[in-house]
């Protein structure tokens, strides 16, 4: 593809699932999980893939980590094709799918790691030392010899992570690494992810949480219904949606004429209207400093119960706008 060597590069990756139901009378359903994904991830970066349920995040993660073949297009990791060079890639990449499954529950965390260390080919001489080191790093040392079935959800997640980095992968794929974790464990996990980047690992991370992407990922893409709908830095994505500032006006319903008046204010790029029970919220994306909350209040004089707030446009706004637009 290009001369520059990206850690991950995809061109028009598609994936179709044909699933069959029933044994004799088969009902075939056809799902286009990915509809042509183009991405490029720099070496040593954390790249975030954000998207709602069913967007195709897991599907793309599995394709990049050689667990699923794409139906079309091409994907390179470390410059090697994930389909034809899977054997070369497997020892060099780590994958954390997370969740409650994926571990042998009846044996200890340490034995799980030993087993996968053997399958992944961690040099025998190094095995025990490396396992101890990683258990300490994910803060599981004291629970290492307990059965995994006794672990909490967060501990299982840590064990998944430990397995993912056993071999010091050059690229690590994390599918929703903090899902289901309490805030403290989630914070620790994010800290660990950042420390890995300091070690030079390239990280490809999917998440539902905007703040997580905002906190961790200098570069990110938003995936919606199998398509990348935006791909940039957090700051530029804010711009993309039409402004760094957001004003919110809330009252018991607004007239159409009032909304049009707001729309005519210079610098207002977009207005989203949402109902909250009896109340309505208008969200205004504002490009310049010219529009202040008082300007909004001045245009809405008939609402004694009016509340106007100003805040920075968050990634969550960007995300909702983009995913919304796709939906229309």
């Amino acid at each position: 593809m290009s001369g520059h060597s990206f850690a991950i590069e995809t061109r028009g990756v598609t994936r179709v699932f044909d699933s069959r139901k029933g044994f004799l009378f088969r009902e075939v359903s056809h799902t286009e999980a990915l509809k042509g994904v183009d991405l490029a991830v720099e070496q040593g970066a954390i790249f975030g893939l954000l998207g709602p349920n069913g967007a195709g995040k897991t599907t793309l993660t599995k394709i990049l980590s050689t667990l699923l073949l794409p139906t079309g297009g091409r994907a390179l990791v470390l410059g090697h094709d994930v389909v034809t060079d899977a054997e070369w890639l497997r020892p060099r990449i780590g994958l954390v799918l997370g969740g409650e499954r994926g571990l042998y529950n009846r044996i200890s965390g340490r034995e799980n790691l030993r087993y996968f260390a053997d399958l992944y080919g961690l040099p025998t001489a190094e095995r025990e030392r490396r396992i101890d080191e990683i258990l300490a790093r994910v803060d599981l040392s004291s629970a290492a010899d307990r059965r995994v079935e006794e672990y909490s959800r967060g501990m299982k997640q840590k064990l998944h992570l430990a397995r993912g980095i056993l071999l010091r992968p050059q690229v690590l794929f994390l599918d929703e690494p903090t899902i289901g974790l309490d805030p403290k464990s989630a914070r620790e996990t994010r800290k660990l992810v950042r420390s890995l980047v300091a070690d030079g690992v390239t990280i490809f991370l999917t998440t539902h949480y905007m703040f997580e992407a905002e906190e961790l990922c200098p570069q990110l893409a938003i995936l919606s219904k199998g398509r990348i709908v935006a791909r940039d830095t957090v700051a530029r994505l804010r711009q993309l949606v039409g402004g760094d500032r957001t004003l919110e006006a809330e009252a018991y319903g607004f007239e159409d004429t009032e909304v049009s008046a707001l729309r005519r204010l210079p610098g207002v790029s977009k207005i989203i209207e949402e109902e909250y029970g009896p109340r309505t919220r208008l969200t205004l994306r504002v490009r310049t400093d010219e529009v202040r909350p008082d300007d909004v209040r001045a245009l809405l004089p008939d609402h004694p119960e009016l509340e106007v707030k100003e805040r920075r446009t968050s990634l969550e706004d960007v995300y909702l706008d983009l995913v919304e637009e796709e939906a229309h």
């Binding site: 020892p91 053997d118 080919g121 025998t124 010091r168």
Partner: peptide, 21 residues
């Protein structure tokens, strides 16, 4: 950080699998 060279071997994997069983 130096990546670890993978030294997987079929015999080692077979034994690991026997052990886990």
């Amino acid at each position: 950080m130096e990546p670890v060279r993978s030294e997987f071997s079929r015999g080692r994997s077979t034994l690991a699998s026997l052990r886990i069983a």
